[in-house]
Design a binder for these strands. Structure first.
Length: 305
DNA sequence: GTCCAAGATCCTTTTACGTCA
DNA sequence: TGTGACGTAAAAGGATCTTGG
């Protein structure tokens, strides 16, 4: 239902009903059993690092990354050595100072994953940040990065195609942008949240407009009702209650009388038709009174002046 | 077939950093 | 130069679903 439809009903029925459809469809989809994400999930299960072979380490677990995401120059450099490749894929390890700076950094689960990863790959993990971009002048780790315009543009482009990613797409995108899969995932999450927020805001605006329109219309109807009530309550001369088109002036008495009305089937006191009762020159005449369902005046069907 | 734990992703909320007026 | 508002990356926490034992 469009806004127009809603605003023109005068009753406002359906307000909000149609608006429901404005909400993010993908979101609704996600909740359904036949959710495409479930398909995605299946794929993910296949690619689950903890379940698959050793060439597939976890990409999504690990502490916040300070190694490869906050320096754009470095960030856009693909891993060049085996060590860097491991570094690129491994769960994250930062300096102790970095650890202390993140309140939730010591997630048990992620630490465990980190340990498992180290064991599995027998990699000597570095305990200090490896790049200048990881720390500020005071040696404090930086917590977040700013994505480059190019990265944001590519992510945006992908988001337009599909608001969710399967693991393969995520991985490819991460590789392409030289980001971690986790970063891509987070970006998509935030992007979905932004989309939903905007949608909610626009829905809210729409509802406001609908509400204003209906309020205005309600006022008009109330006013009209009030007028009709006052008309009905005020007694007025008979001729004022009779539509002008049905009125005529009696040629003999020169008084206004109602027009002819045959709704009574032509029955009157003398049995003659009202159509001839107002003929000029007629000595005796009958005034025809307007009778209708709308104005049921309690007069007899004919009367002498 | 049912139950349960593990794992993955989602969403919402919160936190904290970067940018800009 | 300092500051507050705003945008946004990142994480926490809870919910839901699938899978394997």
């Amino acid at each position: 239902m469009s806004f127009h439809d809603t605003s023109n009903t005068g009753l406002g029925l359906g307000l909000g009903l149609g608006l429901v459809s404005f909400h993010d469809q993908s979101e609704n989809c996600m909740k359904s059993t036949n959710d495409p994400l479930r398909e995605i999930h299946k794929i993910k299960k296949v690619e689950n690092p903890s379940k698959c072979n050793s060439t597939c380490p976890s990409l999504t677990l690990g502490p916040p990354d300070d190694d490869d995401d906050d320096d754009d120059e470095v960030n856009n450099q693909p891993p060049s050595s085996k060590t860097e490749s491991y570094e690129y894929f491994r769960p994250h390890v930062s300096s102790p100072s970095a650890v202390s700076s993140f309140s939730n950094y010591s997630s048990i689960k992620r630490e465990r994953d980190q340990v498992l990863w180290e064991k599995e790959f027998e990699v000597e993990v570095e305990k200090v940040p490896t790049r200048v971009g990881d720390v500020d002048e005071d040696g404090n780790p930086r917590k977040k990065l700013r994505l480059t315009k190019e990265q944001a543009a590519v992510l945006e482009e992908n988001f337009r195609e599909h608001s969710t990613l399967n693991p393969k797409q995520k991985q490819e995108l991460a590789m392409k942008l030289n980001l971690r899969a986790r970063q891509v995932e987070v970006w998509f999450q935030n992007r979905r949240a932004r989309t939903k927020l905007k949608q909610t805001e626009s829905d809210c605006e729409l509802l406001k407009k609908c509400c204003d329109t209906l309020t205005e219309e309600n006022k008009k109807l109330q006013k009209e009702l009030q007028e009709l009530k006052s008309i009905q309550a005020t007694p007025m001369p008979l001729y004022m209650q009779i539509p002008a088109a049905t009125l005529c002036i009696c040629p003999s008495c020169e008084r206004i009388c109602g027009g002819n009305n045959n709704s009574d089937g032509g029955n009157n006191n003398n049995g003659s038709s009202h159509t001839t009762s107002l003929l000029i020159g007629s000595k005796t005449h009958h005034h025809s009174f307007y009778k209708s369902n709308k104005y049921p005046f309690p007069h007899s069907s004919s009367a002498a002046c």
